[in-house]
């Protein structure tokens, strides 16, 4: 069965805000697909449209070869959806939540144990605890269990790792990998660029537009300029000074360092160095670094802003 998603020219407007602008996107059956973008980029809107919770203004989308608008009833049976906000019953225990969602889909927990087993073993020790008293990571695991209880063909996860600690995050992605091996199409939205590398393909989305769809590797490979990490005593002043520099292509504060690209193809690093020295930055560490997804995202999004 084709469990792919194809989106054509999808637009959605809330009042005067255009949340999605003519989105075209194809997600293959059985793919682990990432939707990467900052808050307010339109990820949740796209998910709600795909989950048949919203109607598009124009455009259409098909999931498992069923039209999203006309066939919403069929789609709701094939779909596992985990909203961005924790949406289980906090006053019900873990097992009661799971049982409820099983009965809603007219199935039983035992019949689907093979599907959720790996996740279930982790939350089983807490099965009589109220869902509201679980930790953030546990909540997400329970929500994933509930979304999987009816063996969906497509899984939509809206920011499943937001507000979850690093260990739980990597555990969560491990689970998604093993779910993928069961042939489920998984679409994950996340604001964390580092999670993009864990997806097979990603779409970079900003302000309701898709900047690029590609594998994480190819996105990184496309980065054509040399990227330098510059550390100084006063990163912020250094950032302001570099912005004034005539050959600067882009400069961003990136953790403990500034990520800098030069506007020229050929140039000597010494020139940058001496410019900064002339501005009073005496203790400088400059080294070339490999670009990450975030660098690419920044590069792509400034390009569309027409800001060079």
């Amino acid at each position: 069965m084709n469990a792919g998603i194809s989106i054509e020219n999808l637009s959605k407007t809330y009042g005067s805000v255009q949340a999605l602008k003519h989105i075209n996107l194809d997600i293959n059956s059985g793919e682990l697909f990432g939707l990467i973008g900052p808050d307010g980029a339109g990820k949740t809107t796209l998910f709600r449209l795909l989950a048949t919770l919203l109607l598009p203004d124009i455009g259409s989308a098909r999931m498992c070869d069923i039209d999203m608008v006309g066939g919403y009833k069929q789609i709701r049976n094939l779909l596992g959806y985990m909203p961005g906000k924790f949406s289980l019953y906090q006053d019900l225990s873990v097992i009661e939540n799971l049982e409820f969602f099983a009965t809603v889909f007219d199935t039983r927990i035992e019949d689907n144990m093979d599907m959720i087993h790996d996740i279930w073993v982790q939350i089983e020790p807490f099965k009589d605890r109220l869902a509201g008293n679980l930790s953030g990571g546990m909540k997400q695991k329970l929500a994933l269990c509930c979304a999987l209880i009816h063996q969906p063909k497509v899984l939509l996860l809206d920011e499943p790792t937001t507000g979850v600690d690093a260990v739980s995050r990597s555990e969560f992605w491990q689970m998604l990998k093993s779910l993928k091996s069961k042939g489920i199409t998984i679409v994950v939205a996340t604001p964390y660029m580092d999670e993009a590398n864990l997806c097979e393909r990603v779409a970079l989305i900003k302000d309701g537009e898709i900047l690029q769809v590609n594998t994480p590797q190819e996105i990184v490979d496309q980065f054509e300029r040399k990227l330098y990490a510059i550390k100084s005593n006063d990163n912020y002043q250094c950032l302001l000074d570099l912005r004034e520099f005539e050959f600067t292509n882009s400069v961003f504060l990136f953790g403990q360092a500034l990520h800098y690209t030069d506007a020229r193809k050929e140039f000597s690093l010494e020139e940058v160095n001496s410019y900064l020295k002339s501005k009073g930055h005496l203790h400088l560490e400059i080294e070339q670094v490999k670009p990450g997804i975030e660098d690419c995202f920044m590069a792509l999004s400034t390009k569309t802003d027409g800001y060079e």
Binding site: A51, L53, K73, R76, Y81, P83, F86, F105
Partner: peptide, 10 residues
């Protein structure tokens, strides 16, 4: 937000 999940269910 649980209504969202109920709506997505059959």
């Amino acid at each position: 937000g649980t209504m969202e999940i109920l709506l997505v269910s059959p």
